[in-house]
Amino acid sequence: MRSPTPKRHHKAARLLLVAAALLVTGGLYAVVAPATSVAAPTPEETVARGQELFAVSCASCHGLNGEGAGLLNETAPSLIGVGAASVDFQMRTGRMPMANPYAQAPNKQNTFTAEEIAAISLYVASLGDGPAIPDPGQYDPSGLSAAEVAVGGDLFRTNCSACHNFQGSGGALPNGRVAPPLLDAEPIDIHEAMRTGPGEMPVFADGAIPDKDVRSMIAYLDQVHAQPSAGLTLGGLGPVSEGFWGWVAGLGILMLFATWITKKAARK
């Protein structure tokens, strides 16, 4: 190694050299490091990660191996064979993990990342066969003809409105359970719910209602919710709220007018 001549050394040279070295190393790391982390984990790794998450967030009720009836909740169902779609639906909509063993898991803010949910889904799917998370092509409501959407409406009224109400405003079920409103449901939620039958809901399998019909039902709901109403909808609950507002707003206002009119005396 050639020793540098002392004359060519500047006072700041060493400092600059260190800075440059740091910059190069840091820059190189910045370029290289994500590349190493992007290298997709193998399915086995994801399942393992899912199992870790499952042990932390789910196992207290569903059992360490998803066999159900865990320490905290003896009524928790087994998750063997429920499939990835079920986990995806329950966790994405915030229904699981449940804060309390209510009659029914209410949907709430989901606090898991998409990766975490995917990992848990994959882990649960590895326990037994079940419905997979659908592709967009299975639930995307765009590109359907008007006639197909109208048929979707008829299918919705035949299969769904008995519990979810004629426009998806929701309805009551026995013992404190409810069929939730569908006004804010995403297309994928509806597809997954139909395939997995969460809570009281029956399973509508592919053999009964193929993906194409599911898409047309979702399209119908989207279009019904998008169309203008003929005035205030009064909750979209049917005649009960109509009668209530008829009495309160209708007769109530008229009686205020009646009081006003009868207070007015004739001029002498």
């Binding site: 035949t158 008995a162 109400n165 004629f166 005035g231 049917g238």
Partner: peptide
């Protein structure tokens, strides 16, 4: 101002169908 009996949402009568509410 107030929508009442939106029959287009209920759909035609079909004995196989029923709606909550």
């Amino acid at each position: 101002l107030m929508q009442i009996n939106p029959v287009w949402l209920y759909g035609p009568y079909n004995p196989a169908q029923v709606t909550a509410g």
